[in-house]
Design a protein around this nucleic acid. Structure first.
Length: 589
RNA sequence: GGGGGUGUAGCUCAGUCUGGUUAGAGCGCUGGCCUGUCAAGCCAGAGGUCGCGGGUUCGAGCCCCGUCACUCCCGCCA
């Protein structure tokens, strides 16, 4: 909360109320608006706390009035005057300070300003690049300031809530070591070690595990993370995690702790998070929603139609079923009258998502069926389809026949697309845990197993012995926090046994030598008294974006980057001098 | 790396499909008038590399080719 301490002002603009009437005040701030009536000038003065109307009357001060005639938007002013009630009929109920005004007796120009590149007010529609180039002006606007203030409150609440629960804030290195797996690293050349590089951390993952081996037991950090990958509305090359790790715990402990903390944090945005949150196994999320971060605020769930078409004459269905695949579908209610071209676009989306095709049956009106494949269905199959999919007239049933996971993922994509196309309302607030992720997934391109979460994730105890026999079947102690279809955070229990960690690294294709070179320090630590531990990391930017109702994390970052990773304000990234390159032993082409 | 969208005054846009006089509007800005406005009002005015480069044409903001920037999505993001 901004106040007047440590400054030459006596009050902040936004704090003035009727009880300040007759107070002599000194204010400081920016000229938000000026309304010149010739013989009387109004000026809205803005500081971080808000806006108050100041009145310049030649009868009160001729000198101040002359200054007010010169004043322009965004000039920086020191104004002295008397708070008084506004005259009858001129109270502005739309302003927090609308009951009062300040009659100015003395004015000082602290600084002038060029005409700003865009208007400093709410609701402008200015191109983001221009706003970013003059971000310091943009931040004066109420919605940008409000987003940063919300971010501040959320961050402070995390600190308080975690501190109250015995968590210690520790900083970990920004200049660290590149590790395989995961995202592309940002690298920094080492001047003192020619040809060697630091990497910026993708997350403090390994350091927080080391801090558990250190015996800190409960750690947190508001940690900057760096990943050199392409940007999105919800992805920046540098972003902030609320990073948490704890020892001597089980999965339920971290989930419960997190629920309590999130309940407190979200109060800062007037959200009353209902806890405990429900927990949905990954397999259920995929089966019902085709997505590991399901938006459960609307239906259109995936329905299994394998039984319906178990003896189908339709060759596409029959061949998929004979090779162990599934037939699943969704019912897009209200799309029954869609044109062939719109459905063709869905088919293309299905193909792009990995399906071999999209089967569809439209029910435009009562008794009418439109479909290129319905002729292959028996009456019984059709009746069962209608029954299972709860078909009414006006519906469009989309079906995918493919391997189980492909059918799920494709329909999950189609489900979200149809929700957008049909403008299905997604109101309310919905949060859940998705748990029990598979340990590994197979990378067909590289022909190897990769870690689903990261290589330090603990497999289910009862599956440890059979890990190598059937990697695909192994599940892990893992959990993602999902809110309104956004991945807000995720974590795991960690492997704290060096031998098991070696086995997992081996399974991921790292030779013993390789593992020692890249992760030797971790393996060594695990052999020197590592306690059972686990944790979670929350995407602070995404959480605040969600709470602010913003469409992009750029809206909740003070100085964000464009989609090509540049900063229009400073011009970064930029070239460096030949000398700088020589010093770090680099040559460019 | 791929696909979609956008680029015209300080800002937001119209004009581009169908090439043709001096490229328009609103806001903002500048000047004047105005003592109760809060999107102040009225009058007047200034302000343009139509993203950039090339091509077609008698003539290009408009058509063609290339390119750049921003933005959304796919790939990528343990």
């Amino acid at each position: 909360m901004l106040d007047a301490r440590y400054s030459f002002r006596t009050n902040t603009c936004g704090s003035l109320r009727a009880e300040n009437n007759d107070d002599q005040v000194v204010l400081a701030g920016w000229v938000a608006k000026r309304r010149d009536h010739g013989g009387l000038i109004f000026c809205d003065l803005r500081d971080r706390s808000g806006i108050v109307q100041c009145v310049f009357d030649p009868d009160a001060s001729g000198e101040a009035f002359v200054i007010a005639e010169r004043m322009r938007p965004e000039w920086v002013m020191k104004l002295t005057g008397t708070v008084r009630p506004r005259p009858e009929g001129t109270v502005n109920p739309g302003m927090d300070t609308g009951a009062v005004e300040v009659l100015i007796t003395s004015a000082e120009v602290l600084n002038t300003s060029e005409t700003p590149p865009f208007e400093v007010e709410a609701g402008i529609d200015t191109d983001e690049t221009t706003r970013m180039r003059y971000r310091y002006v943009d931040i004066r606007r109420p919605e940008v300031l409000a987003a940063l203030q919300l971010r501040d409150r959320v961050t402070q609440r995390f600190r308080k809530s975690l501190e109250h629960r015995g968590f210690m804030e520790v900083e970990t290195p920004i200049l660290t070591k590149s590790t395989p797996e995961g995202a592309r690293d940002f690298i920094v050349p080492s001047r003192m070690n020619p040809g060697k590089f630091y990497a910026l951390p993708q997350s403090p993952q390994l350091f927080k595990q080391l801090l558990m081996v250190s015996g800190l037991e409960r750690y947190y950090q508001i940690a900057r993370c760096f990943r050199d990958e392409d940007l999105r509305a919800d992805r920046q090359p540098e972003f902030t995690q609320v990073d948490i790790e704890m020892s001597f715990m089980e999965q339920d402990d971290v989930l419960q702790m997190m629920e309590e903390v999130m309940h407190e944090v979200m109060k800062e945005a007037d959200v009353d998070l209902q806890v405990p949150l429900r927990r949905m196994p990954y397999s259920e999320a995929m089966d019902r929603f085709g997505c590991d971060r399901p938006d459960t605020r609307f239906g259109m769930e995936l329905t299994c139609l394998t039984e319906t078409f178990a003896t189908s004459e339709f060759k596409v269905f029959a061949s998929v079923l004979s090779s162990g695949g599934r037939i699943k579908g969704i019912n897009a209610k209200g799309a029954g009258d869609w044109s062939r071209s719109k459905i063709d676009a869905l088919n293309q989306l299905a193909l792009d998502s990995g399906a071999k095709g999209l089967a569809w049956v439209a029910f435009p009106t009562e008794g009418d069926v439109r479909s290129p494949i319905a002729k292959f269905f028996t009456e019984a199959e059709m009746a069962d389809l209608r029954d299972k999919m709860d078909v009414e007239s006006g519906d469009l049933v989309l079906m995918v026949a493919d391997a189980h996971d492909v059918a799920n993922e494709v329909l999950g994509t189609l489900r979200l697309r149809m929700a957008d196309e049909l403008k299905i309302e997604r109101t309310g607030f919905d949060a859940l845990w998705v748990v029990d992720f598979p340990m590994f997934k197979y990378d067909a391109d590289e022909e190897r197993w990769t870690a689903n979460h990261h290589p330090f994730t603990m497999p289910f105890a009862e599956q440890v012995d059979s890990l190598e026999d059937d990697p695909a079947a192994a599940l892990s102690y893992s959990y993602d926090l999902i809110m309104n279809g956004l991945e807000i955070g995720g974590g795991t229990l960690r492997i704290h046994n060096a031998d098991l960690q070696r086995r997992v690294l081996a399974l991921l294709g790292h030779s013993a030598e390789d593992a020692n070179e890249k992760f030797g320090f971790l393996l060594e630590a695990l052999s020197l008294g590592a306690p059972p531990h686990g944790g979670i990391a929350l995407g602070l930017d995404r959480l605040v974006m969600l709470l602010a109702g913003a469409q992009s994390i750029r809206d909740v970052i003070a100085f964000p980057k464009t989609s090509s990773g540049g900063d229009p304000l400073t011009g970064a990234p930029d070239t460096v001098s030949a000398r700088q390159l020589r010093e770090v032993h680099l040559k460019t082409d």
